[in-house]
Design a protein around this nucleic acid. Structure first.
Length: 575
DNA sequence: GCCGTTTTCGGCCCGACTGTTTTCAGTCG
């Protein structure tokens, strides 16, 4: 897959062009192309010019550049550009408050071409005296450098959401807010978040701003204005708060939910219809009359579009789908009837089977699958063959007694480094369902890792592949597998792919989910819960599923118990 | 550099805040 490479190069080209002060629309064209290539499920290396031209934002020029790069491994235009602006120069654009104009100035006047250079000059007070730079700017640059040295920028959503909830509840208690919601990438449920955007309405915006910048968790105040302020929390997360009037709330919410690329497309549509959209409302350009803005739905309605759910507002085809009235009907948390991957105290979970059943019942589930670790996973107190058979008997016994919730007997069987499973088929066939996953040998070759998953999927008793890429957001990269091959095999064998809802996993991720949907395979959204509160992770999983355009019909655990069992037996029968 | 029910040229989303300015450019989202 060459797409990430091509996307990176286009982004770097955009950076350099920006520093050179080129036409902003040309720069935007490169960035848009980069983004669309990155989100593509097909490899651009295998596409002919004609197919490339069908990608939004790719015209004859960029199609040619893509072909040049994938066939020769080199892009002449890019090599030339790098000679004109040193590659490190683009890095200093990551310093907050420092943009392309300043970068060029610093390079021309002082030959600064890296963040290290910049820091040295700033510390020695040698930036002062350049046009537009005085004491204050120098201080801000040093603060900015310190900040990016502390944090790489994006945080897993599971770490950010609780912070946002804290801030929202504090503001509710201490300031005169009416509406108060998180917007931005948090409302779109991206798996990683750069900053928290909060939107509110209030009769006294100034008071809200005052309370906000004095919140105990505000370590630093980046800016404070009449209607907009920014702070940085102790964890290093930037939080932007915006206050608007009640009758602008809807348009402001649409605007601050983004994504930016989505907004630009929406506003382009508006311009074509003689309308103007900003955070204050939707206006008729000719008469200046305000047509709406109180409710977010106004924006879509006035444009003649169906409502687009926040999770898919990425300019990744949702605008086209809306225009043609073929938006997906996304799966909803209410559709989920059970969890097919949870652990008990038979292995490394905290609860007994009875306790798990009570927790699941409280959530309104019809069933859960108890899937403890297999013996190979010593660290997780994996079960011996005797133990799992014992557990199986206990589950059957429970189901006989229980009138309500149903427990499925299962296992999270380890896929060993040679691709074999940790239990023989003779044991697996006694269980209702089998979840299989990789827990070791992450550094094997792409071929080996792919082969392990493929051979596990070919086992008729393997129902679900759990956390298929093994990534831990911010801690461990996905291991190197050929996802096309894996999805193709899933399709052929009738194996289900998991969307692991743990907020550090969210694996498969949105991009792969979309690809899986296109491949036509069935998925399951599971929490992998080890303790009661983790059952609540289901929402993260469902939101991620929605980002991948997943519909209810694609999700195994939206089925009723009988249909679900039929699905599982189907694979076993087709061996 | 892309794009087209304003179609092969001339557009391309829109506004808030900061710092250094005496009216605005740069940056950000």
């Amino acid at each position: 897959m060459r797409n990430p490479e091509v996307a990176r190069i286009f982004n770097e080209i955009a950076d350099i062009l920006e520093i050179k002060g080129e036409n902003p629309f040309r720069i935007r064209a490169y960035r848009r192309a980069a983004r669309n290539i990155d989100g593509l499920t097909r490899d651009v290396a295998g596409m002919q010019e004609k197919e490339l031209l069908k990608i939004p934002g790719i015209g004859p020029d960029l199609a040619g550049k893509i072909r040049e790069y994938v066939t020769t491994g080199r892009l002449e235009f890019y090599e030339e550009l790098k000679k004109q602006a040193p590659p490190g120069l683009a890095d200093i654009l990551s310093v907050p408050g420092l943009g392309p104009k300043t970068a060029m100035l610093l390079f021309e006047k002082l030959k600064i071409k890296s963040i290290d250079d910049l820091q040295r000059y700033a510390e020695e007070g040698r930036l002062k005296g350049l046009p537009g730079i005085k004491q204050r700017t120098e201080e801000n640059i040093l603060r900015g450098i310190a900040m990016i040295r502390r944090h790489s920028g994006r945080f897993p959503i599971g770490r950010v959401l609780p912070v946002a909830e804290d801030i929202i509840s504090e503001l509710r208690k201490k300031s005169p807010v009416r509406e108060l919601v998180a917007a931005g990438s948090l409302r779109r449920w991206k798996d990683t978040i750069k900053d928290i955007d909060i939107l509110s309405t209030s009769g006294d915006p100034q008071k809200v701003m005052d309370v906000f910048v004095h919140l105990p968790l505000a370590r630093e105040v980046l800016m404070k204005g009449q209607t907009k302020s920014s702070i940085v929390t102790g964890e290093g997360i930037q939080v932007d708060l915006r206050v608007v009037s009640e009758d602008s709330f809807g348009s402001a919410l649409a605007y601050f939910t983004g994504s930016r690329a989505h907004n630009i497309r929406i506003r382009e549509l508006a311009v074509k219809k003689g309308l103007k959209i900003n955070e204050y409302g939707i206006f008729d350009v000719r008469t200046g009359k305000k047509l709406g803005g109180r409710h977010e739905s106004d924006v879509f309605r006035i444009l003649g579009l169906p409502f687009i759910p926040p999770e898919i507002r990425e300019d990744a085809g949702e605008i086209e789908a809306a225009l043609e009235n073929r938006l997906p009907r996304l799966v909803d948390i209410e559709d989920i009837r059970g969890d097919l991957h949870v652990h008990s105290n038979y292995s490394d979970g905290s609860h007994s089977l009875e306790e798990l059943a009570r927790i699941a019942e409280k959530r309104g589930y019809e069933y859960i699958a108890v899937t403890d670790h297999s013996k190979g996973l010593g660290v997780a107190r994996g079960m011996s063959a005797e133990q799992i058979l014992q557990q199986n008997r206990e589950i059957k016994d429970f189901n006989r007694r229980s009138g309500g919730i149903r427990l499925f007997s299962g296992v999270e069987v380890d896929i060993r480094s040679d691709g074999t499973l940790d239990y023989p088929d003779g044991i697996l066939e006694k269980l209702d369902m089998v979840v299989a996953s990789i827990h070791s040998g992450f550094r094997q070759s792409r071929r080996q890792l792919t082969g392990r998953l493929v051979s596990a999927m070919k086992n008729p008793y393997v129902t679900i592949i759990a956390h298929p890429t093994g990534r831990l957001i911010g801690e461990r990269d996905a291991y190197d597998i050929d996802m096309d091959e894996v999805l193709k095999t899933a399709r052929q064998t009738g194996t289900v792919m998991e969307i692991n809802a743990h907020p550090l996993r969210l694996d498969l991720n949105d991009i792969y989910i979309k690809k899986a949907v296109e491949t036509g395979i069935c998925m399951a959204v599971n929490t992998d819960a080890h303790i009661d509160y983790q059952f609540g992770f289901m929402n993260y999983g469902v939101r991620t599923a929605r980002r991948g355009w997943l519909e209810k019909k694609d999700v195994l655990n939206t089925l009723d118990r009988k249909t679900l069992m039929k699905h599982i037996r189907n694979k076993r029968a087709n061996r």
